[in-house]
Computed example of a mutant assay.
Amino acid sequence: MKIRNGRISALAALALAASMALTACGSDSEGGDSGDGGGGDVAITMLPKNLGNPYFDTSTAGAEKAADEFGGSIDEVGPDAASPDAQVPFINTAAQQGVDALIVSANDPEALCDALDEASSAGTKIVTFDSDTNPECRDLYINQATSEGIAKAQVDLIAEQIGDEGEIAILSAAANATNQNAWIEMMEKELADNHPNIELVDTVYGDDDDQTSFDKTAALLQSHPNLKGIISPTTVGIAAAARYLSTSEYKGKVALTGLGTPNQMRDYVKDGTVTAFALWNPGDLGYLAAYAAQALVDGDISGEEGDTFEAGDLGEFTVGADGVVLLGDPFVFDKSNIDDFDF
């Protein structure tokens, strides 16, 4: 079994389609029609929001581990910048190649649907992970945790760190990112219902770009001199914000939490810039997404509510309403445990 992990830029997408058209699994050799319970290796294309993002590097590594276990191949492709339009050529290429399954973290809930529908019509199984499309545009969504659970974990952390009162702001990713907007909506509700003394004064967008997120952090602190805390529900954003805070006058005065990876945040936790933050294991998320894709391709499940499948070391999972499979609850990282993790 060969693992292919080619990181392909947006500029190369059309060239890829011309040079590799119809050479992947799904041609006349092995594996095209996969409803027969599996015939040959499962060929999967993995399309994160953007390449060069440590979060997605980890999720792809998890998918590769799963593919190695069940006998499949992973091709990681994607744009350099997180935008819906930039993902479309890669979806089209996957459909033209006839891959068995496409695993996508969507940059927009609707903008990808036409391309995904065409891929589905060509026989490709569609699995979203991390950030969903509209349910009718895919077969399954692998959800890292419920929006309510993620929102509550982040609000609870910031509330604890600022004494449950004062001004806070949110530093998000792209303004149209499905998962970010769902979490922000739930955070607003959680604040209104259970934290009346915390005021959300601003929400800004760093577009999952390090420098933009760094600059937005600086602007937030200048615009809101009484700011006591920042929530950044994006791994790029929280690391950029921590980098700014760590060398500023606000270190130790303005709390920062959100969603990050231990390897990104370790130094900032140890130097006191950040007390605690949350995340699931993105490696597990990619691992689960790959096993879900295999189960669809092999015909073990159809994506209907109540379907069950085995996901290697993670055990058995059940498909919920609207084709959603839930990984689990977010985990809180702090100084006491961060060295126990490496991703």
Rank of each mutant, 00 (worst) to 15 (best):
D36L: 12
F56T: 00
Y250W: 10
D342A: 03
F277E: 13
N281F: 09
A61F: 01
Y287T: 03
D68V: 01
S246L: 05
L11W: 04
D202F: 03
Q154T: 08
V204K: 02
S172A: 07
Q144D: 12
D339F: 11
G123P: 10
D57C: 08
A24W: 10
E305H: 10
S232D: 00
T247D: 15
D100S: 14
Y55I: 02
R7I: 10
S302A: 15
D322F: 08
S232V: 04
L314C: 07
G71R: 05
Y244F: 04
E305S: 13
D313Q: 14
D298M: 00
G32S: 15
T60H: 02
K65Q: 14
A12N: 09
Q180M: 01
E310R: 13
P233F: 02
P84E: 09
Y55L: 09
I74H: 10
F56V: 00
A61K: 14
T308K: 06
G40L: 04
E305T: 05
L171W: 06
G40P: 10
N337L: 12
N92K: 00
A119R: 05
M265T: 00
Q264M: 09
Q87S: 02
R138G: 01
L259R: 07
I238W: 00
D108C: 06
E136V: 00
E165M: 02
V325M: 12
G78H: 01
L116E: 01
T146E: 05
L279E: 13
P225F: 05
C25F: 09
D41V: 12
K152P: 03
E76R: 14
D85I: 12
I231M: 03
D108I: 04
K2V: 13
V127T: 12
I162E: 02
D300V: 14
E64C: 00
E64N: 11
Q180I: 02
T60S: 14
G35D: 14
D130Y: 03
G237R: 00
Q294G: 01
A115C: 01
V99I: 10
E167W: 06
C137Y: 04
G39L: 06
A67D: 07
T212Q: 11
V42D: 07
R266F: 02
N226E: 10
I301M: 03
N107S: 08
I103E: 08
V332L: 09
I150W: 04
T146D: 11
F214V: 02
M20V: 10
G78M: 10
D340Q: 12
L221D: 01
I168L: 00
A290G: 14
F56R: 06
A61C: 05
A17Y: 05
L157T: 11
A122L: 06
S73R: 13
N134S: 08
T247C: 07
M20F: 11
A276S: 05
D156V: 09
E64A: 12
D130A: 08
L171M: 01
T128R: 03
D207P: 10
S59H: 01
Q264H: 01
N143D: 14
